[in-house]
Design a binder for these strands. Sequence first.
DNA 1: TGGCACTATGACTGAATAGTCAGGTTTGAC
DNA 2: GTCAAACCTGACTATTCAGTCATAGTGCCA
Lengths: 217, 217
Amino acid sequence: MSQATKVDASVGARNRAIILTAAEKAFAAQGFKGTSVQQVADQAGLPKTNVLYYFKTKQELYLAVLKETMTLWNSSFDRATVNDDPAEMLADYIAEKMELSRTNPLASKIFAMEIINGAPNLNNYFDEEHSEWMEGRVSIINSWISSGKMQPIDPHYLLFNIWASTQHYADFSIQITRLRGAKMKKADFAEATKHLVTLTLNGCGLDVPEKYRIETR
Amino acid sequence: MSQATKVDASVGARNRAIILTAAEKAFAAQGFKGTSVQQVADQAGLPKTNVLYYFKTKQELYLAVLKETMTLWNSSFDRATVNDDPAEMLADYIAEKMELSRTNPLASKIFAMEIINGAPNLNNYFDEEHSEWMEGRVSIINSWISSGKMQPIDPHYLLFNIWASTQHYADFSIQITRLRGAKMKKADFAEATKHLVTLTLNGCGLDVPEKYRIETR
DNA sequence: TGGCACTATGACTGAATAGTCAGGTTTGAC
DNA sequence: GTCAAACCTGACTATTCAGTCATAGTGCCA
């Protein structure tokens, strides 16, 4: 790669990143239709045409944002095996998902709206990969159950429950803030995580690992 | 009320209802910005101007839909008292919320998008009423705890968890359908409800009432 | 110096769409 | 029959907005 290309690319890469950040914010706050390219441009501090220079269409920009979002979804639970301890794996998974809700609420919101609106931009590839992931996780949880490591429960419902309850803290943050009277801080998330882990693990008849135990005053 | 008014009103009422149903569908699928008055009109089988005759602006139509949605939110849990059995009350509340997700998924989706987008159309009145409701429920759960009827847990997190996990079946129905390979039917909802009740009540150290127990094969 | 690739942008266009308006019809009461 | 109120609608307007285009600047290298 020539020096020229390198430098030019770095300008491009920086602008792309700026635009993606601005777009994420706008799309999360107003959805795809509700966001204008002009708004993204303003947020990014660039002329609209410059945004369209990097991303030919609004759709392409949105897809780029969505794709970046997806890369966040990976977790240690992807690599769980039959030999792992269910309590620890599930607790860590919940904690990871909560940390994502805390640090990347916009990504969660965009994903949520995409699904609510019928997932028109998630292709078959995503569907298949997601289904495979699900199948794998279901079978591992089932083997934990059949080896007596945890109470019988349909793993599908368990996983849905974990997603729902963790993503809720990102997607419904406004409601939560208004009901609590204050925004959730890092410490509040830590507390909420313990509660979620406790609820879920007790729910499956598992012991809560030390570090997730709620201190009773 | 004169006969004329009655008849006229009934035409009006019928059309209003048709329009609201069409609008609910459209708003749930595409959000406020993504829905055009023309689309609602087509869905309702009426000319656009006729829709705007009944609802002066798109915003007014949306607010009417949102308001109808809110009337669904009431539940038996609103009237829980310290003397009630927490296991039964919570189980019934979860079951009611699940039934709402099954029968009124569109309402749930519209509400979810409204919150995700920062609740720009929910007024102070809603906020205050909602906060009061929350305070009341929290204090009842806390008295259940202090009278030893259930394990100590922060009622806020418990309620958030119930909302999240039940509404998930409405809001994320597309994802659930794709992952399961088939749409959730009434029987599947019954099964999911039992799982949710079991997870949640076990989570709080409560016995699951007979009717919600999962049959182990 | 000239050439190339990339970056940048103001001016414009065409389509979509919320909302208006003016005039029309229906319905029931008297 | 006639009046009023409610209902209905085609034609139009004003605005917003995605995307195009023609032109220009920048930085490197041969």
